[in-house]
Design a protein around this nucleic acid. Structure first.
Length: 464
RNA sequence: GGCCCCAUCGUCUAAUGGUUAGGAUCCAUGGUUUUCAUCCAUGUUAUAGGAGUUCAAAUCUCCUUGGGGUCACCA
């Protein structure tokens, strides 16, 4: 069985890049009938771990991901780590180091001055003397100092390091006894049964250290997949400064979960020329070994396009429900279907769509000046008056086609083109020269409001 | 700087030794639409550079250049 995991540190929100690795991990596990686990990496300071976990689970929920089993908190597993530290100590695979921070810093400076790689010099590796007074030791693991370390990566292929280039006896427990990252990651992954690790390739250089731990503890190595980073427009690692890195911010901006997952899955992964993927299709087609080797740049335009695509294809009931989050409650609006159909193809986001709808529903408060000039050049006011009279006398007005007939009658009677009525009427109804079809708008707002808006603009014309 | 990773249109990517180097997005133009948007059609734009292997290289090798990641008692 394939077991994957997502192991964020508790920052308080789910990062868009993190979501992609989570999605990849989720897809790969679920595709194979396996398990997708969630672990909070909070060994360091007691940040806000429970809340952070909640933020992640909430974001998962919105996106449609779900982890299996209980959330694992590293901060609650300190006892487990301690037993493994003790075991390594007992077996002579780890040792206490009494070097102070100051001494370490001094060593580093010497090494830097000599243009050598900064590394711990293993001075306490075989220490048998009397421990210095007043120093709380750290625990260091004995790491190989020669030979090659090969990561058989599922994306990058074999990545080879010389042990002497990258390793030293690194710290597995701080002087306060708290275990360090590379140590606990290996233990947790092994104990949780994680056998396929999909993570960002910024972890690639950590992997040899973790392999040292796996080896010392006799754990079986998982399959690693190091996914290339998502970069910002400057080609740098995505960070808070790039704006929306919090997944939930995308909800606020009016993005659909389907659009986001589709967008993310296509960043670094593809299946021929296919652009649109439902979660079901992803589950059928995704394979981490098909992931690209190179980093990709986060590009907003494609996301917008996808979002527009999913909005267009959403059914109206779901759309109406989704729009409620943007302050638009219209369950009672009797022309809801016409309204949604009229705007769903002209909005890139739900937020935009909500604004569009509000605009249609509200009587215009201002009129676009250039639009006024364009629309009311000739006898537009007379055309509008004529239209208004005919509309006033009409009955059985329900559908857009009913209103359309009135417009046609008017231009036929006055022997003018459609543009003669369309432009001024558009100004009257919407206050500007762009927007949905006029027939639809009138059917949505109804006869009385249509008459009202026409009357208002005629008054405005007469004032001048 | 050491180590590691990477390199096809602006962007996301396809082409696993033989294609007029394909698709999508963006942009532009045209059509549809009374307008805008949608939709449809068309178009501009790419194998970083240099050697080598081969009948044949975007694809394999090497070098150069460029970009990125990482080097903690953070994760």
């Amino acid at each position: 069985m394939i077991v994957t995991r997502f192991a964020p540190s508790p920052t308080g929100y789910l990062h868009i890049g993190g979501l992609r690795t989570a999605l990849f991990s989720y897809l790969w596990a679920k595709k194979n009938g396996g398990r997708f686990l969630l672990r909070i990496e909070d060994t360091d300071v007691s940040r806000n771990n429970e809340e952070a976990a909640k933020a992640i689970v909430d974001a998962f929920k919105w996106i449609g991901l779900k982890h299996d089993g209980e959330i694992t908190y590293q901060s609650k597993r300190l006892d487990i780590y301690k037993t493994y530290i003790q075991r390594l100590l007992d077996e002579g695979k780890a040792y206490k180091c009494y070097m102070s921070k100051e001494e370490l810093d001094a060593l580093r400076e010497v090494q830097m001055a000599a243009k050598e790689r900064t590394r711990y010099d293993s001075r306490y590796r075989d220490f048998a003397g009397v421990a210095p007074e007043g120093i709380k030791p750290v625990i260091r693991i004995k790491a190989p100092t020669s030979g090659k370390i090969v990561i058989n990566d599922g994306i990058k292929g074999d990545v080879v390091f010389n042990a002497e280039d990258i390793l030293d006896d690194f710290i597995i427990a701080r002087s306060d006894g708290a275990p360090t990252y590379n140590f606990v990651v290996a233990i947790d992954d092994a104990l949780m049964g994680v056998n396929q690790v999909i993570r960002g390739d910024d972890h690639l250089s950590n992997t040899p250290k973790q392999m040292v731990v796996y080896d010392a503890l006799g754990f079986e190595l998982p399959k690693f997949y190091h996914v290339p980073m998502i970069h910002n427009a400057d080609g740098k690692k995505l960070s808070k400064r790039d704006g929306a890195t919090d997944v939930m911010a995308y909800k606020e901006m009016g993005y659909l979960p389907e659009a986001i997952t589709n967008f993310l899955v296509r960043l670094g992964w593809s299946h021929g020329d296919q652009e649109i993927f439902s979660i079901e299709e992803m589950l059928e087609l995704f394979d981490p070994s098909d992931i690209n080797k190179s980093a990709s740049i986060y590009n907003h335009e494609k996301l917008d396009w996808l979002n527009a695509h999913y909005i267009k294809n959403m059914d109206n009931a779901a759309l109406a429900e989704a729009l409620e989050a943007y302050g638009l409650v219209m369950t009672s609006h009797d022309k809801k279907e016409i309204l949604l159909d009229a705007v769903k193809e002209r909005a890139k986001t739900l937020k935009e769509m909500a604004a569009l709808i509000k605009e249609i529903l509200a009587t215009p408060e201002a009129y676009d000046e250039k639009g006024m000039e364009k629309a009311f050049k000739g006898n537009a006011d007379e055309v509008l008056k004529s239209f208004s009279e005919r509309l006033n006398g009409a009955t059985q007005l329900h559908l857009p086609i009913d209103y359309h007939k009135i417009m046609e009658e008017t231009i036929t009677a006055l022997d003018v083109g459609f543009g003669k009525i369309g432009q001024p009427l558009r100004m009257a109804l919407l206050g500007k020269l762009s927007g949905p079809g006029l027939d639809e708008v009138m059917a949505i707002i109804g006869k009385d409001e249509t008459l009202n808006r026409v009357e208002l603009i005629l008054q405005k014309i007469n004032q001048h």
